[in-house]
Nucleic acid binder design. Structure first.
Lengths: 194, 194, 194, 194
DNA sequence: AATGAATGAGGCTTCATTCAT
DNA sequence: TATGAATGAAGCCTCATTCAT
């Protein structure tokens, strides 16, 4: 019902992304997704042959989007700190749309989901060099460069992953947690940079 | 078969913890767990009534262990930095045994797993106050105190969660990743403290 | 694609006959047949309304061809033995093209496939009389006439039906079985006639 | 319901044999068989893991029974003609119980059902030698020995396979066909022996 | 305490068929 | 005449759970 302006196949993928990555229902059935998309369950098989192949299509799209976003920021000609700041923005924005994306991809990997040709290696190498330069300049903590990236991702993503757990742990309601999230960007930048 | 020195019930729980948190097979069936424990599948229902209640027992045990460990360190009469250092040690050690523990607890929460009576509130309040004092002293970044704890957990746990993803991203083999992990503690302490 | 010189409808029937009676895939789906014919699956429904009606059309064509062939030989003005010899030839030739034809028709009858108006009764009556006369002459075994025809069909058709089973039973490879088949005609004639 | 005196697993196999080989419903679903056996459909999976493996079990049992029966007669110390006579009896009796047995096994072979280790080769070789001796004695038609066996099976089995087709072809009602079948043994013996 | 047998619920998939163009 | 999209029916299979011993 919902969508005739976009092609049905794409509509199903988008719905699945929402179910998986926004609602976090990684184990939604094909019926669940069909219901959410307002289509007949069989249609999913018509387009994707099997549940697994729908998964593949969804993860592939998510992966490509992530890479594209990362490259558009990290590949730009900007000062390092500015670049990281924008990247944190991009990540946070994405996490607001798809809070369960990272955890889903990680979880699904345990279940045999194979890796696809990932971030262009050269791209990663270049960025690691840029990080190394900053360490030499003394603007960030000196260490094996991968640690900086690990720290970055950890600080941004993890609190989203464990949101319900944290809310409970710290006794924060939805509103209060929202406030904390809003502060994260500044905290993260201060944590990453000397 | 495997265990007659410990009660069968406890043996099943331990096996389930291994399957869930060490192997990361959160969706293992009762048959899987029964196989791993070397017992008949229906025995699980005999002891735990239902799959969900086995889950509850397992998560409850994990939760209690986590709290006990946390309290034994954070509740001790030690200088703040020393305390955090020991806590990072405890967390890292636990993650080596149960790398999928945190992610499992988080994931299962999405699926309606309810929270149990969690960390004694007073305990958390006391620790947050301690953090606030340190912020005032200037030894750590000044912010809403929960951020410090969020940072701490994020920096320690996340790299374990996304290990396979990271290995791929940075092109690290098992040995190289191991080396990075060994460096984490120092990096984390330097990141958390000014 | 394959056929524009013959009507598409006829092309589909011919393809189906090949799939059913030459390849022996009596349970081929409409998709299988469409693929083999190089046409869209729904086209089969366009022409034949339903899978069953395609079946009907195919079996009807096979039946008519069989009857026509039988009549052209058995209705000819030839000495009895000559007539039977030619009929065996005709049957063997047909079985080489459509080895699974007889078994398919038989099998499909079990599944409720109704009979159509069959061999003209008079024609069969005449032939049975001819057989009776030969029995009186003593050239063939004396018995209820239908036995002669049963024997004839059995001896010719059955070895084709159970070819794979026989190959295995007697340990014959393709070439060796071919040799046996070539000997069949003489053996059959000797078996049928005194 | 039907059976508590025999083990359920065996009861399911027997029911399946009846459905397949007596009723000729080779494409019966697991539900059909479960209904016929008076058991829950899932129980079939409990015992046989999959529909295919039920098939395997059924065909294996049929195959073993056939071999055992054949050996008990053909391996006996009897005059050749007497032996064949008894074998025809055995085959006819079996066909009355399982008229669709042979055709089912043949049909299923087309669909990839693999052969199992079949009739002991030595046994077949011995019987072929016996046939060759009879040919030398002149009691049966002289030819490659396998033809005699082919003829034997053809003459006995085929009329059962095409019973409905034959009834129609010759215009025989159930009673009349029954009468013809009763005559078959004598006709077959006369046909096979000089 | 333990287990083989049995069952209901629910999931994935295939297929023939219909609809709209 | 031909085809892509969509759907309902029905099949197979897995799983948690219950029953009877």
């Amino acid at each position: 019902m919902a969508a005739k302006d976009k092609k049905t196949e794409q509509h199903i993928i988008d719905t699945a992304m929402h179910v998986f990555f926004t609602e976090g229902r990684l184990h939604a059935t094909t019926q669940d997704i069909a219901d959410a998309a307002g289509v007949n369950r069989t249609l999913i098989h018509y387009y994707f042959k099997s549940r697994d192949q729908l998964f593949d299509a969804v993860f592939e799209k998510a992966r490509l989007e992530s890479i594209r976003e990362a490259q558009s920021v990290l590949g730009a000609a900007l000062p390092f700190r500015k670049k990281i700041e924008q990247f944190v923005d991009v990540l946070l924005k994405r996490l607001e749309t798809y809070p369960y994306l990272e955890i889903s991809m990680t979880t699904s990997m345990h279940n045999g989901q194979p890796f696809r040709d990932e971030v262009p290696e050269i791209f990663m190498q270049q960025f690691l060099q840029e990080v190394a330069q900053e360490m030499n300049k003394g603007t960030i903590q000196r260490a094996t460069p991968v640690h900086f990236i690990m720290n970055l991702f950890s600080l941004v993503i993890y609190p989203f992953i464990v949101k319900p757990l944290n809310q409970h742990l710290f006794g924060l309601n939805e509103q209060e947690y929202e406030k904390i999230v809003k502060e994260r960007k500044t905290v993260i930048m201060n944590t990453l940079f000397n």
